[in-house]
Design a binder for these strands. Structure first.
Lengths: 200, 200
DNA sequence: GTTAGCATGTAAGGAGTTACATGATTTT
DNA sequence: AAAATCATGTAACTCCTTACATGCTAAC
């Protein structure tokens, strides 16, 4: 049986970027930062084998040099431009429609959110709720651990854990805002949630 | 040539825990959560080979069954209790004294902080400053990216990046508090920055 | 008498990195 | 002529996880 497992965040991200138009590896890699976590720079040693794999699986194909999107390429080294195949588009749609656990676990969630513009509203809502739920579970665990061990931990460990807890709390707040906006149809705000909230 | 590279957060954490007294693998693993990121549960498939390795390198040794710390162990399966060797203690001290980049990069920073109780005050300060610096660099990059691309990104990507930025900002604030306390000698506060007053 | 928890371990594999190998073109 | 940037790719290695293999004891 063909191993269809491949959750592979990277593949998802590549499909999403290629969904906007054909690209070659070098360019793809640069744009990957925006889609993957803000600070992830994927290396070529990771990307090229991935593309190779996707080509072999038929998710992408080499694009004939119909230089539509590419801005005035002169000689340079022969670049290989990839585009989505029908199967690739299909796969991407499947991914977009998945609101299961895979969609709100850490890494995956960020990528899903990056493609929310192309995700159905009800799927979006389910992913956001799933994510918030997961975080709330974590918070509960953390709080009970903290309460139990409070005396046995030194101050540094405590501050660290407290900061972690605060972080998760703030992500939950952020999600709640998004969820509410999603429910009453307001587009998401770009405003900072942070530093100078005025109400305390 | 003997590859002495091994930065290995895990080894550092194990040394730190063993520094308080001999422990066996199973117990070690449970305590690792507290020291590593709050949500990292290291698996046995990772821990046991690591212990094996450290044993081979001479950082730890099997402890004779002088059941000092262990509470009333009856039969059970033969557990293997490890203790630090002189080299292990040495290695740990070296690690504690390291205020270089390794000490404030993501994973490593958390572990270092967990052992701050056994770290010299000036080293602590340098690590905190190094960490804050790194985060401020990131913030600068992020902000300029955000400013440059603001128009070309959809609202979801923007909120995501904004939330990321806010997160980093708050970590910087937290670090600044710790740094100030470190400078004027106040012990770190356990109080939450957030949501609840938390006297219990 | 079976399930849950204690306890140690290995094999296979997934997801990524660094370092290397190659080579063209543009800028200094 | 050297350096920077563009561009693709492989090999070896790291660090981790899952799934398996083993077996003991306590509790239900």
């Amino acid at each position: 049986m063909a191993n269809t497992k491949r959750t592979h965040v990277l593949q998802f991200a590549v499909l999403g970027l290629l969904h906007e138009g054909p690209l070659h590896g070098y360019e793809l890699r640069k744009r990957l930062n925006g889609v993957l976590g803000t600070f992830r720079a994927i290396s070529y040693g990771s990307l090229y084998p991935c593309l190779k794999d996707m080509l072999a699986t038929g998710l992408i194909a080499e694009d004939g040099p119909a230089d539509a999107g590419a801005p005035a390429l002169t000689g340079r080294r022969a670049r290989i431009v990839y585009k989505l195949t029908a199967e690739g588009k299909d796969k991407f749609q499947q991914w977009l429609a998945d609101a299961g656990p895979d969609a709100y676990e850490d890494d995956l969630f960020g990528v899903h959110l990056a493609f929310f513009g192309r995700t159905d509203r009800d799927i979006r809502l389910r992913i956001l709720l799933g994510r918030r739920n997961r975080l709330e579970e974590r918070m509960a665990t953390l709080r009970s651990n903290l309460a139990k061990r409070r005396e046995r931990l030194d101050e540094w460990t405590l501050t660290l854990q407290q900061h972690g807890l605060d972080s998760v709390e703030r992500e939950v707040d952020w999600l709640s805002t998004l969820i509410n906006q999603e429910i009453d149809g307001t587009p998401p705000s770009t405003k900072s949630t942070g530093t100078e909230p005025a109400s305390k």
